[in-house]
Simulated scan of single mutants.
Amino acid sequence: MNFSSWPPLLVVDVEGNGTNPPDLVEIAALPVRDGHPDTSTAGAWLIRPARPVTPFAVRVHGLTNQVLADKPGWEETKDAVHALLGTAWIAAHHAHVDYRALTAHLPQWKPAGVIDTLRLAKATYPDLPKYGLDALIEHTAPDLSQAPAQRHRATYDAYATAQLLITMADHYETWDQLVAAAVPPGLPGAPEPEQESTLW
């Protein structure tokens, strides 16, 4: 894979407060440049939610109401998030979830396309018994020595997903082949279905 052919792309991960629909409590956006995660230009935000974090959500990511009490709310955060995301492609594991949460909070934002590393993993490794992030980390053994925080925090999960994306990309010759395998139908960037020509 020639990584220099890639358009601007950020791997994103969001964590919520456990309500439905969720308030965002953490967002990470990690650019991938020349086949490497670029932590020097990454964005990460902790956000005080409008509604308390549920006990279940705390057990997942460890972000308590006390930790978030002095963080800015979404209104003070959204412009910076929108500015970093811009019109770049995004990638995420089980991308529908992150894309849905971000578009709900940023209705004016639209990425150029959405890469789903879960969908890509099923195409790249068709015989695995599981495709969760932990199972794929175990299968591909990426270098996570520089990953910030810990599993289930947005910064760690974005870094791990970026390394997973880079590893899987080597199975494809071109960006278009990667997109065909990785973008779910109905999300931005999905290849148009081929139309059958009709002869009149």
Rank of each mutant, 00 (worst) to 15 (best):
S5F: 02
D70K: 15
L9R: 08
T39K: 03
T198C: 09
A44I: 12
A57Q: 03
A160W: 05
D98Y: 04
I27M: 07
E173V: 14
L9H: 09
P111G: 05
T174F: 05
T19Q: 14
V53R: 04
D170A: 14
W45T: 01
S197A: 11
A121F: 04
A190E: 03
V179N: 06
E138A: 15
T39F: 06
Y131W: 07
A121G: 08
D116G: 00
D176Q: 15
A83L: 04
H152C: 12
A92T: 12
L85E: 06
K122Q: 10
S5M: 12
P142Y: 04
W109T: 13
T77F: 13
D176L: 07
T19G: 11
E15N: 02
L46I: 10
A50V: 09
L24W: 00
L106G: 06
P188V: 05
D23F: 10
V114C: 04
N2M: 01
G35R: 01
H36V: 13
Q163M: 12
P107F: 01
I47Y: 04
Y172N: 05
A95K: 07
H139F: 05
L10N: 04
H93D: 08
W89K: 09
F56M: 15
V179E: 02
V53E: 01
A141R: 08
T167N: 06
K71V: 07
K71P: 00
D23C: 15
D157K: 10
A141F: 01
K78S: 11
A121L: 02
T155A: 13
V60P: 04
D70F: 10
I90S: 03
S145D: 08
R59S: 15
P111F: 07
L120A: 03
V11S: 10
T167K: 11
Q108S: 14
V60K: 00
Y131A: 06
W200I: 10
I47K: 04
Y131C: 04
L106R: 00
P188K: 02
Q66V: 12
R153S: 05
M1R: 07
G18E: 11
P37Y: 03
D98N: 11
K71W: 07
R59W: 12
W74Q: 02
D157V: 12
L199S: 12
E75P: 03
D23Y: 11
H61V: 09
D13I: 11
H36P: 01
L84G: 04
A141P: 01
A149C: 02
I27C: 07
K130R: 10
E194F: 02
L9S: 09
L165P: 07
S197P: 03
P72F: 14
R33G: 02
Q150H: 15
K78W: 10
A29L: 03
L24G: 00
N65C: 06
Q108F: 10
W200G: 13
W74K: 03
V81L: 11
N20F: 13
M1S: 14
Q195N: 09
T117A: 09
T77Q: 08
I27S: 01
G35P: 06
T103V: 15
H36M: 14
L144Q: 00
D13A: 13
P21Y: 09
P184K: 04
N65W: 06
